[in-house]
Nucleic acid binder design. Structure first.
Lengths: 336, 336
DNA sequence: GCTCTCAAGTGTTACGTATAACTACCTCGG
DNA sequence: CCGAGGTAGTTATACGTAACACTTGAGAGC
């Protein structure tokens, strides 16, 4: 609402066009065929444009009982991953006349603030990343249609789940490293309780226990370059035979590992092969470029939004995980 | 709204508590002192909690004529910079009972889609980055209170502007390089029409023309690592004396420059000093760590939100640009 | 000439909330 | 005993929209 004069309503438009408010609603709602004559409709449209009329969305939402607005709950936007998820979701949403409101759960841990209080919006549904699960207690109160991203299909209390095939990505990474001849593995795990990271650990362990003669150690750190560096440095300087392959839960952790390797005097990939997961811009910014698993974040967001739209229309969402694929770059090589 | 049963309204709560709907509104709106007895108020709160009542925001917004929601228009979220701006803005907003809806203008160029159609929200005001200026034509239609981030204070048609003191940042960078002994400069400029980048070019040129014996060339590229690499590589292999200092419009461009230098066989900082601007996480992920200008994106978002709140309350916003400061790391050294 | 149908509208209502205006009861000072 | 003032509520209304139910006039069909 402007400061000085109040903004025009459909009634003002009606008066300007010399028709009733109902006629304005019909015309602007594109439901006028057979109810209003073409010249009248044109007059209404002109009057609306003349006055700079914009429908009051609060009133429309109240009347219709739905908002065509969806909430996307993500962890803090510290990488571009969820920004791309948002882009994909918003694109599909726009095609269906929906809007997407982004709710990045506050950086710090602890139970998130009420997303509804923050994103003052009235909502039709929610898409939430499992990494922002602490926000979900507040969410589950309202039992809005809910789509969970990268979440345990079993433990999601009936919410629809949309997943990337992360396990397959880790299998591809592991096979790549095994084929190169690596046997001693270190897993740099993300120190965040989330199904999506459990999957990584499980897939890696499964593959390696099935391969005789291999060895796996694990170290974990919060997802930050500094924390990853510290944790990796400790692991690399620990007693015992040094691992030759370092599998990181994501690209950011890998970037931290690069710095640890450098400090420890190890060259990548000659002394240590490193892999990431995500394929962020960061992956090609560091030297050598990172061998990693490409996740199509936009497609992920699109799929999530399509699933939610399906739920809203009472249809069945698409099944199956989204494929991922290994991108081999310069950070992996046969062990010396 | 849930699928099966309809969700409870304040009238349902009233009935459950044995009071009128008005009393419920008073109690839950915390305006009951002296109007409703304490035991009754308690009963109402219990009934509301029991039923899982959530006020219908569409109805509230309609009634109040304001939404306590603000739109933040930013360029695509390809770095964490605007994510942090959002964080700061959202924090201040939450303290005042406001929500922030994020509208990243679509990646592609061209006039942006109508932000209102996308973010279905009814809005009280707008904060917009000058880098997303193409979205503004649609915005200026509704004359909502508007705060512009990093925008020309003169040419903003009366919108409030909130700026970082980028010019001072560039001055600090330039002085640092001059003190180290550099005389031949290359400016890697962002190929985006925006006041914030004009400021950089002007500040750099001003400082260098005031310093006899210096030389400045300029090359520009879109803000992407690959584009920056290509442009820089061309400039570094051009005929004539090679620049010894490369001033980049932001950190991402600097990361591209690193790759160009590597390809050209130049070592940083021995053969070429490089500076960035932003201090993204990227700045410390690359090797050597980047000398850059630290922009406090969260403070920027906070300041922007406070300015908008001031405008909404008819007060005068804070004046003065936000300070920035040089962070010297390993990418700058005296020329050989 | 009468009914029937159809086009082109209009009148009215409800969505759920916040609040202004009102009421009824009680207490207490004079 | 009366009114002033406070307490504890209630009733009624408006916000702007969408859509249902209704009206009116004109022409078609017989």
């Amino acid at each position: 609402m402007a400061h000085g004069s109040t903004r025009p309503t459909s009634r003002d438009v009606a008066q300007a066009a010399g028709v009733s408010q109902a006629a304005v609603s019909l015309v602007l709602g594109d439901k006028w065929r057979g109810r209003v004559s073409a010249p009248t409709a044109q007059r209404v449209r002109e009057a609306a444009h003349e006055l700079g009329y914009r429908p009051n969305l609060a009133a429309r939402n109240l009347r219709l009982g739905r908002t065509r607005t969806v909430l996307l709950v993500v962890p803090a936007l510290t990488t571009e991953f969820f920004a791309e998820v948002y882009t994909g979701a918003a694109r599909v949403a726009a095609q269906h006349g929906f809007g997407v409101v982004l709710y990045p759960s506050p950086e710090g841990v602890g139970p998130a603030r009420d997303p509804f209080a923050s994103a003052q919006a009235a909502l039709d549904g929610i898409i939430a990343s499992s990494m922002a699960a602490d926000a979900l207690t507040a969410i589950r109160g309202d039992h809005l249609p809910l789509v969970m991203l990268d979440s345990d299909p079993e433990g999601s209390h009936g919410a629809t789940t949309v997943n990337l095939d992360i396990a397959d990505g880790i299998r591809q990474v592991t096979d790549h490293l095994l084929t190169l001849g690596h046997r001693r593995f270190l897993h740099l795990a993300a120190d965040i309780p989330s199904w999506t990271f459990d999957v990584r650990a499980r897939a890696l362990a499964t593959r390696l226990t099935a391969t005789p003669g291999t060895d796996l150690r694990t170290v974990s750190a919060p997802i930050s370059i500094d924390a990853a560096r510290t944790a990796t440095e400790a692991a690399l300087t620990a007693p015992g035979p040094r691992p030759t392959a370092l599998v990181c839960d994501d690209d950011k952790l890998a970037a931290g590992a690069y710095k640890a390797a450098r400090r420890a005097g190890l060259r990548i990939p000659d002394d240590l092969s490193v892999t990431g997961l995500d394929d962020l811009g960061l992956a090609t910014a560091i030297d050598p470029e990172l061998t990693t698993v490409r996740l199509d974040a936009e497609a992920f967001g699109e799929r999530g939004m399509r699933a939610l739209l399906a739920v809203l229309e009472g249809q069945a969402p698409e099944k199956g995980d989204l494929p991922v694929n290994l991108v081999v770059r310069g950070s992996t090589a046969p062990p010396r």
